[in-house]
């Protein structure tokens, strides 16, 4: 019962946390680029404005896909905070991600189409990495249950440092930060403009932004599992991880999906296997 309550609480708080993180991110990124930056609450203003706009969409599929994407992201956050199975959560999350691609494919716009193709490539890259991380967590703690992993007596980071690195790569892809901002980017100065999001506007774009916040909270939650023993350790780990994301975003140019499949995926797989082998031997 408490777990379900916790899940519902997370469902309400996750978008707030996600928006706040996005606002902080924008502010810190601005300072790193020697700009002043927007107010911390700017993401909320943006989304509120999007919801205030006239709903106009090309076809019903897009609307349906936007809702399913939000549903997938929200349900996976609920499952995570309710302490459910990591594998179940993984598949629910994947459904949401795939429906984002469907939504983009539902329109004939070449930017949207190419963005969808690239998003598929990104899914293809981070999903295997994510499942390897889950396998590592299960191997170290003996359970796929989030609740069981959460109550593991010692910080998992010490056992799974390489897998944590792999998880941060997946986080970079999910956050759509350089060098992995191919399918869509936080600013539209890209060859395919906004990629998968090109054909979305108004309240439906707001839904997608909301879903994005849920996803960020989910991946950060999975990061938090690596130091679940103390609240201070957890917060420090998350802060350092996010700061590193901003740092990487600002020290690198955008690369290409060919590079991602060629180098990033291979490196991620190699690191994961190394860590898993180490777990078996230890």
């Amino acid at each position: 019962m408490t777990s379900i309550l916790l899940g519902i609480l997370a469902l309400i708080l996750a978008p707030l946390a996600g928006g706040l993180i996005a606002g902080l991110d924008r502010r810190v990124t601005a300072r790193v680029q020697s700009r002043f930056g927007p107010p911390i609450l700017q993401p909320f203003y943006d989304v509120a404005k999007l919801f205030g706009k006239e709903p106009r969409m090309g076809n019903v599929w897009q609307i349906f896909c936007a809702y399913i994407y939000l549903l997938g992201a929200a349900v996976s956050v609920f499952l995570f905070f309710a302490g459910a199975d990591l594998l179940l959560l993984f598949f629910v999350q994947a459904i949401g991600a795939v429906f984002l691609v469907f939504g983009a494919l539902a329109r004939p716009s070449p930017y949207s189409q190419i963005g969808a193709q690239r998003e598929l490539m990104q899914i293809l890259t981070y999903e295997p990495l994510l499942i390897l991380v889950f396998v590592g967590l299960a191997k170290a703690t003996g359970s796929f249950k989030v609740a069981a992993i959460w109550s593991h007596p010692e910080p998992l980071l010490l056992q799974l440092p390489l897998l944590y690195l792999v998880l941060t790569t997946a986080l970079t892809i999910k956050l759509r930060k350089s060098p992995f901002d191919f399918s869509t980017s936080h600013h539209g100065h890209q060859e395919i403009v906004k990629g998968v999001l090109t054909e979305y506007s108004g309240p439906y774009l707001g839904l997608i932004e909301l879903a994005h916040w849920y996803e960020v909270v989910l991946v950060l939650g999975i990061c938090a599992l690596f130091w679940s023993t103390s609240l201070v350790g957890l917060l420090v780990l998350l802060a350092v991880t996010y700061a590193a994301e901003i740092f990487v975003d600002n020290t690198m140019a955008r690369l290409t999906w060919r590079w991602m499949l060629g180098s990033a995926l291979l490196a991620g797989l190699a690191l994961s296997f190394l860590n898993l082998v180490w777990l078996y031997l230890a």
């Binding site: 300072r31 700009r35 002043f36 930056g37 740092f247 020290t251």
Partner: peptide, 21 residues
């Protein structure tokens, strides 16, 4: 890859270059 490090940190800890017009 991380030649930008110095710039990133010096920007973060110094005043922004833009003007709040």
């Amino acid at each position: 890859m991380f030649f930008m490090t110095k710039t990133v940190f010096s920007n973060l800890f110094s005043r922004y270059a833009t003007r709040l017009h």
